[in-house]
């Protein structure tokens, strides 16, 4: 371990090419323990590529990724939990919610390992924390998009990693899920986890994240949300139209004098789906 304080995830000078296409150019990022870092950028800006590089799923042309100061190897990667984007999973698979979550611990159990009783207990607790404990015996495909998202966050919790990578956790989910996920993020921060989350949602970035990284192939701005989320930096990241849409979405989310209360308690939609921000 190096002498300087390196608790957490460090990405240094990461460059990734897909064939001739430059996906990430010299990106640097730090996600310390007890920090939620938001990764913002338009589609194809390299957000998912960055997560995949951390997970060892894509080849890096250049760069170094360390966890607590040590380079990532296969064992260290077992300490990184991750929620997939929707299109990576076979939703018709005959698997129950609790089985999905307990499989988050397969890396810890090894190739021939089977879930122990303790693994099932951890899986059930994670489901309870996300408010879907009673759905544990349902088939994964029967759940709503928001519930499915919560299942995968529960899987990441069950894996009990030091680092959590969440890929668009708020895209296309219901208001209740948004509230629960946001609460979970603050809870994870309190527990000293390093959380890296990609999002389109400026409100999430502004309210929850300790640090925001604006990404469009290269890192455009990195720092506290108040400093980074400036019209100028957003314009550079998303282009003119994209930035306007983002800011409009934000204004719609929190109108100064709305006709109906949007932060109503109970099951009414408290916040608009983050998908609206990119519409």
């Amino acid at each position: 371990m190096s002498a300087r304080t390196t608790a957490g995830l460090h990405v240094e000078r990461l460059t990734v090419m897909y064939g001739p296409h430059l996906a990430l150019d010299d990106a640097c990022l730090t996600c310390e323990r007890g920090q939620v870092v938001g990764l913002l950028g338009p589609n194809g800006s390299g957000k998912s590529t960055l997560l995949k590089a951390v997970l060892g799923l894509t080849r890096m042309q250049n760069g170094r990724i360390t966890l607590d100061g040590a380079p990532l190897d296969r064992r260290a990667r077992a300490r990184i939990a991750y929620t997939p984007q929707r299109n990576e999973v076979d939703w018709s698979f005959p698997i129950t919610v609790e089985e999905v979550v307990v499989l988050g611990r397969q890396g810890l159990r090894g190739l021939f390992g089977r879930p122990h009783r303790s693994d099932w207990r951890i899986a059930w607790e994670a489901l309870d924390q996300l408010g879907i404990g009673e759905l544990r015996r349902r088939q994964i495909g029967e759940l709503s998009a928001g519930q499915q998202q919560r299942v995968f966050i529960a899987r990441a919790l069950a894996q009990d990693g030091d680092v959590l990578l969440l890929d668009e956790p708020l895209t296309g989910v219901d208001a209740q899920t948004q509230t629960i996920v946001l609460h979970m993020l603050t809870e994870l921060r309190r527990r000293g986890r390093a959380v890296l989350v990609t999002t389109h949602d400026l409100t999430l970035a502004g309210e929850i994240c300790d640090c925001v990284c604006l990404l469009n192939t290269r890192v455009i701005a990195l720092g506290a949300p108040a400093h980074v989320l400036t019209p100028r930096a957003l314009l550079e990241t998303f282009g003119g139209d994209g930035a306007v849409r983002l800011l409009e979405g934000m204004a719609e989310i929190d109108p100064p004098d709305a006709a109906e209360p949007r932060y109503a308690s109970g099951g009414t939609p408290a916040r608009r789906s983050s998908g609206s921000a990119t519409r």
Binding site: L55, Y82, F93, I95
Partner: peptide, 10 residues
């Protein structure tokens, strides 16, 4: 079910 997660878990 989820090959990406399997790989990510090492």
């Amino acid at each position: 079910f989820d090959p990406v997660a399997a790989r990510a878990q090492g």
